[in-house]
Design a binder for these strands. Sequence first.
DNA 1: GTTATGTGAGTGACGTGTCAACCAGGTAGA
DNA 2: TCTACCTGGTTGACACGTCACTCACATAAC
Lengths: 160, 160
Amino acid sequence: MTPASEPRWLTEAEQDAWYAWRRMFPLVNAEIARDLSQDSGLSEADYDVLSVLGSTEGHRMRISALAELMRWSRSRLSHQLTRMEQRGIVRREEVATDGRGAEVVLTETGVAAITDAAPLHVESVRRHLIDILTPAQLQALAEVGEVLRHRFGAARKGRD
Amino acid sequence: MTPASEPRWLTEAEQDAWYAWRRMFPLVNAEIARDLSQDSGLSEADYDVLSVLGSTEGHRMRISALAELMRWSRSRLSHQLTRMEQRGIVRREEVATDGRGAEVVLTETGVAAITDAAPLHVESVRRHLIDILTPAQLQALAEVGEVLRHRFGAARKGRD
DNA sequence: GTTATGTGAGTGACGTGTCAACCAGGTAGA
DNA sequence: TCTACCTGGTTGACACGTCACTCACATAAC
């Protein structure tokens, strides 16, 4: 906070890490997103929502619970659900116990979508990331992720 | 492509790496973007464009060259420049040698913006990423980035 | 020179995400 | 009960990125 007269610019090694960081995520994610879209007609956001709902009993969940589990803002989830609802892969339902509340439910189309998409998606993730890296590199990624998660106080470890 | 009867699901170690991958980037970038916006009123996209232009002679560059250097689509850059131009931090100029061509130029406001923003941005990057990780972890990130860059044929290594 | 093709750049529609505002329904205190 | 506040959820405006399309100018073929 003191107006540093000399900012601590990055060393070369730090720059390498920073540039790698900036580049690799868009690079890999764009490939995986492209595959997902072509193979299954889904966006990554669609897939994330579907995969969570696909593994709950009744294929349904309270909207606020879903948002919290995914660490999405309510607003973001609401917009996303609106788009997904228009395409018929999820449906909103009022909940009896709380006049304000609502649930999302997978439609049959939605169940089929995630069932069909999952194997292809795994292959894509392998092809563009997992199978490219050595076990040591994968472990390093997991470790860095762990450090950062702690740093940012994102407690939960569960699945996506 | 053969309809795999049994998809190769991820092992636990692979899942750890994959989930870490999915989480870390948004987590860290959101923090850095927030800092940038609060400290300097710039988006990351703004900053990227400004920082490239800030280190060219004349603070100007041919639009297509800028797009290629940044690995952005022309369209993306065009939209971005439109927004930046409206805020007065860059200006478009026609180029004499080619009736189709155009250049972007930093305005005085733009020069001031990047000059003021850079030190704060470095601090932010340190705070949210670089200073948190060990040299070994930074090196691991750089290494992974290198592997992926090769895999995706993104040849150039230069700066952002 | 005229025509075909290529290239630099901008545009429009749409999906996505953020923020701030809003609204309806709950809850608690007077 | 009335009021104040909280909470679940939606909405609108806007920033950003992609894709497909367009338009103007350049270049090469004839």
